[in-house]
Structures are given as structure tokens and as C-alpha cells.
Design a protein around this nucleic acid. Structure first.
Length: 263
DNA sequence: ATGCCTAACACCGTTAGA
């Protein structure tokens, strides 16, 4: 089962790139983030014509997540636990989860768009940290099922020094701040494996490059898109890598897809 | 310290991304 995650930065602007990716790479499951469209505006027919089932959870202008799958999509969930009063009012479309039955077995997958945080010590930064708490609470429950669970996301956190182009200069900045890294680690401490790092302990490979200042050309990037695996999925992890080609095209997303193969 | 670049939306600039 090949599962990929990709922040497309508008599914409308990137539709041809997405269809090309499905055709060329043939993932069983593609987890999308940053749709930037309403659920009903998602290009479902185009994806179905490419041979994929669709479950999308969008909103106007911002955020939005989706699951595309060659296999049937079941038991869709789009909510996270409410830990505080303020969480009740949270209508941002950042989470979608489903069960995929393929290759004679069940995989539970989730596509998550963790908040960016905007600025350290801002309200949005606090929202980002709290979002990790809600995600951790939810995953804690999922892990009790002891399934092959794959959480693909734009986590908006580079976990370690190797995951950024200049750790000294970037330390303490957005996506490379100790508080964010602690939240990300708290997910790993539940028993999840970072698929890329599990297979490539010493390789520096980014998944995002700034549009500005020739980020890609100078390889000034961050590894912030990750596939986190339950023990049952990690036991069967066979490969994981970043697909650079979509980032090198005309009018690309600023993120590249990350994929893994799980037996 | 700031802009750099891109997309959406609603208009010819603002908000957000990371």
C-alpha cells in the first residue's frame, strides 16, 4: 500500500499537478492539505475519472483536507476532541480520517493540516500548540485499536536540526521553535514512528521550500511534512521518500509530496 | 528589519502562508 501526503496550496490551482501525480506515481492513497475550497467545490469528478474515490473536508478560502483512494473509503471522521471551551467554536477544516480496505487488509489514514502559527507568541501560535494537544488526544484513542495507522500531514514543524537548512539562524523561529518541537515529539512518544527518519536516519531532505528568494534553487527548505506510523504500520514500512518532481514544475505548490510503502 | 512569491477574494489592495 503506497500512501502519499501533499500540501497542494489550493487544489484548484494545482488540479493538473494532482492528476499528473496520480497518473505517474499511482499511490493507493493520496492525503491532501490546503485545498482552499469549499467541500462541494472539490474536483471530485476529475479525481474519480482518474480512478480514485474521494473524501473531502473543505471551507471557503483557507485550509481544507482530503483523502483520495483507489480502494473504498469508509468511516470518515473530520473532528478532533474538544479539550477546552474555545475548541467548540473551532470550525477550521484541518482534519480528515478514514478506513481504507485494500490488499486484503484495513489501513486507517488521516490527513491533517496543522496550523501554521503565523508568529511566535501570537494567538495563532497558541492555537497551533493547542491543536497538537487535541491531535495527540485523538491519536491516543486511535492507537488502542492496534491498527495500521498512517497520519500524513503538514505538521508545520521541523523536528530536528537536520530538518532545516540553517539550524543556528532558524532556531526559535516559526516551525523550528522548541515548543513546537516538543509538541511534535509528544506525538512520537505515543509510539508513532516518523517514517522518513526511521528509514533515513542521517539524510537531510526537505519537503517545503519558500517561493521567495530562490528557496528551491538554493535548497533552503524545511522538512515539515511527515508520515507518522503506528507500530503495526511501522513494522511493515518498506520505503519512504520525498517526490521532488512536482515541486520542480511550473506553478508548483511550495510543498513536495512525501510517500511511504507499507506491506 | 524587511521583502522576497503565490493564491483567494474582492476588487485594483488585503490576508495568509512558513
Amino acid at each position: 500500500m503506497k500512501i502519499a501526503t501533499w500540501n497542494v496550496n489550493s487544489v484548484k490551482a494545482r488540479l493538473q499537478h494532482v492528476l499528473d501525480y496520480l497518473k505517474d506515481e499511482q499511490p493507493d492513497v493520496l492525503l491532501l492539505q490546503e485545498l482552499k475550497c469549499l467541500t462541494e467545490a472539490f474536483p471530485t469528478m476529475e479525481c474519480e475519472d482518474a480512478g480514485y474515490n474521494v473524501a473531502a473536508h473543505g471551507q471557503k478560502t483557507y485550509n481544507g483536507v482530503a483523502i483520495l483512494s483507489k480502494h473504498p473509503i469508509e468511516d470518515v471522521v473530520t473532528t478532533l476532541p474538544v479539550l477546552e471551551e474555545a475548541d467548540k467554536e473551532d470550525k477550521q477544516a484541518r482534519y480528515i480520517e478514514a478506513v481504507i480496505c485494500g490488499d486484503g487488509q484495513a489501513f486507517r489514514v488521516a490527513s491533517v493540516y496543522v496550523p501554521n502559527g503565523t508568529e511566535i507568541d501570537s494567538d495563532r501560535f497558541a492555537y497551533k500548540l493547542r491543536y497538537f494537544d487535541r491531535l495527540r488526544e485523538h491519536i491516543t484513542g486511535l492507537l488502542r485499536y492496534e491498527e495500521k495507522l498512517i497520519i500524513g500531514a503538514d505538521y508545520n514543524v521541523a523536528p530536528e536540526d537536520i530538518d532545516v537548512y540553517n539550524p543556528k539562524a532558524l532556531r526559535g523561529t516559526l516551525c523550528f521553535h522548541p515548543e513546537e518541537q516538543q509538541k511534535f515529539r509528544s506525538l512520537l512518544h505515543l509510539g508513532l514512528a516518523d517514517a522518513y527518519r526511521a528509514l533515513h536516519p542521517d539524510v537531510q531532505q526537505f519537503s517545503w521550500w519558500d517561493y521567495r528568494g530562490g528557496g528551491l534553487q538554493n535548497n533552503k527548505g524545511l522538512r515539515i511534512d511527515h508520515l507518522l506510523l503506528s507500530p503495526q504500520a511501522a513494522d511493515n514500512l518498506q520505503a519512504c521518500d520525498v517526490d521532488l518532481h512536482p515541486r520542480q514544475k511550473e506553478k508548483p505548490s511550495d510543498h513536495a509530496p512525501v510517500w511511504c510503502e507499507i506491506a
